[in-house]
Design a protein around this nucleic acid. Structure first.
Lengths: 122, 122
DNA sequence: ATCAATACATAGAATATCTAAATAGTAATT
DNA sequence: AATTACTATTTAGATATTCTATGTATTGAT
């Protein structure tokens, strides 16, 4: 019921959950690259935003992580969407679209007919 | 060139500037009521968000304020859009629409063909 | 007189995100 | 062998924003 909490804040979380749902398990760097390429280079999520967001999702049980050795020594941390994370994604998507529509209602309003707070004139 | 800075953060600022442009000078409470009614009650900007946002806009010279006595004692603080604020609004609008489109490019991507970061298999 | 709405303001807490750097493996080239 | 670039994860510290909550005061209606 407010702008304040759910746009950019929710956007990173929402995009991460969406990719894990559509593509399946991914590791951190892969997630950042997928967001970058799917948005034609426009959305850059720096590590300082990406990893804290992932840790928060783990804390809340929306995703889980596991390690996987690749080649001789490289260990990647993969993230897996849990069912509570799917529910969370649905909520975030609804919030996103509702907030977007509300913002655009305001932006498309020319405020010619709206007469709020104009009762008092000199 | 990044999500991070311009969605919700920019949204309050953008909506305030938009209303001042379309409707002309307004006072704080009026702005909050206009946003609320234009969004059919969905967007609620509490005072603790509204006033700091207005003060920040004044600091940067995008808007100015003046006091106006209404009735016997009540003094309202009106806000006026400056020309630098109109330019700022144009930038914020462009940012908003570009970010929105980028987010939706990611959301509409099923990630079936995108093969980033999958070179290494066991 | 009391209540609700109007109107402005700010302290304090909580969140989020960013910048920046540290650490390390891999791959290609020279 | 050295360099460079890219892949990959992590975290400290700074900044910014917004929220909750409260305080003060005016105005209008009952």
């Amino acid at each position: 019921m407010r702008v304040q909490n759910n746009f950019k804040k929710g956007a990173v979380e929402m995009l991460l959950l969406h990719i894990l749902k559509e593509k399946g398990d991914c590791y951190g760097y892969q997630l950042s690259q997928l967001i970058k390429s799917a948005s034609d280079g426009y959305l850059i999520i720096p590590e300082g935003s990406m990893y804290p967001a992932l840790y928060k999702l783990i804390d809340k049980g929306y995703i889980s992580d596991y390690k996987k050795q690749v080649g001789k020594r490289l260990i990647r941390v993969y993230y897996h969407l849990e069912s509570s994370g799917e529910k969370r994604l649905i909520d975030l998507l609804q919030d996103y679209y509702e907030t977007k529509e509300s913002i655009e209602k305001v932006l498309n309003n020319k405020f010619e007919d709206l007469d709020i707070g104009e009762a008092a004139h000199e």
